[in-house]
């Protein structure tokens, strides 16, 4: 039970002789209250605002918002982008985490820091660097134009910027986890004659699956929600290069608050997806 403790274990701990159950429950109550208060002010209140605005003119208006062809185009573009970015960054993340967590080598801290770097880069700059490379005034601008290839202000630019922004997430989630676990089990498997692939899938993967899942979820959420970097490279062509976040901004700018927040609320469906995947893994683990 990784998502939470099992009932049985909780009962067992509670019924253990000598355990001060009163103090325990006070601590538990305090932790839950504190968590809920913090989340209520910071997370739930804005989320409720989003839904309240999206539904302020009734369900019909809410669902009508999704019939707009530009909205559909935006959703499609976001899905395509995430479908390319997330798997690529997951492969990278696993490879990087394996190299960094399983081996000791010089310059490791620098490598980790370089992987962290995109998080620290302001989204505006994340977009700008690709304009500096591939824009008309940039290094490859003229060459690209002569060969009639567009990167910025087209899909490739959007994908590159999104990939840059979400680059560290899977790796960063896995590295501390894999370091903490140590190499003993993998070493044992290899000594017993297992191959690299088998060791990874049968020994390492089961141990890191929660970290991997969180990494993928974060990466995906960020890929779908990224605004700043994509805004710089998108060109804002309606129905063509506007992703969901950009489309939300367009609708908001048009005073279409219902439509804007309806599209935004769609992104909260990702939470439902998270819920389903987690339940699925827990369920598979039990059987």
């Amino acid at each position: 039970m990784a998502g939470g403790p099992s009932r049985a274990l909780l009962d067992e701990i509670a019924s253990r002789p000598g355990r001060d159950t009163f103090v325990s429950s006070v601590i538990k109550g305090a932790f839950i209250t504190l968590s809920l208060l913090f989340l209520a002010a910071l997370l739930f209140a804005p989320l409720i605002t989003v839904f309240a605005t999206a539904l302020s003119k009734g369900f019909e208006m809410y669902f009508n918002s999704f019939a707009d062809p530009d909205t559909i185009a935006a959703i499609r573009l976001t899905l395509i982008t995430a479908a390319i970015v997330v798997p690529t960054n997951t492969v990278f993340g696993v490879a990087a985490a394996w190299a960094i967590a399983k081996f000791e080598f010089k310059g490791k801290s620098i490598l980790i820091t370089l992987i962290d770097l995109p998080i620290a880069v302001s989204p505006v700059i994340s977009g700008l660097i690709y304009v500096l490379l591939f824009g008309m005034q940039g290094w490859f601008g003229l060459w690209l134009q002569e060969h009639d290839i567009s990167i910025v202000f087209a899909l490739p630019g959007i994908i590159l910027a999104t990939m840059f922004v979400t680059f560290p997430y899977v790796a960063r989630e896995l590295i501390p986890l894999m370091q903490q676990m140590g190499n003993d089990e993998e070493e044992a498997a290899i000594t017993l004659g297992a191959g690299g692939i088998m060791t990874f899938f049968h020994v390492t993967l089961p141990k890191i699956r929660w970290g991997l899942l969180y990494g993928v979820i974060l990466c995906n959420a960020r890929a779908m929600g990224e605004f700043g970097a994509v805004s710089v490279v998108s060109g804002h062509i309606r129905g063509l290069t506007t992703t969901m976040p950009l489309h939300v901004e367009i609708l908001y700018q048009e005073y279409n608050f219902v439509g804007a927040f309806a599209v935004a609320s769609l992104l909260t469906l990702l939470a439902v997806l998270t819920l389903i995947i987690k339940s699925l893994i827990e369920w598979r683990q039990k059987t």
Partner: peptide, 26 residues
């Protein structure tokens, strides 16, 4: 979220990623 069980825990757990998924402007 990891150690205690209470009603709504799973939903709250799933909502933690929302600040990422929501466009920053929203």
């Amino acid at each position: 979220l990891v150690r205690y069980d209470f009603p709504g825990r799973k939903l709250i757990d799933a909502l933690i990623d929302m600040p990422f998924a929501l466009p920053t402007a929203v």
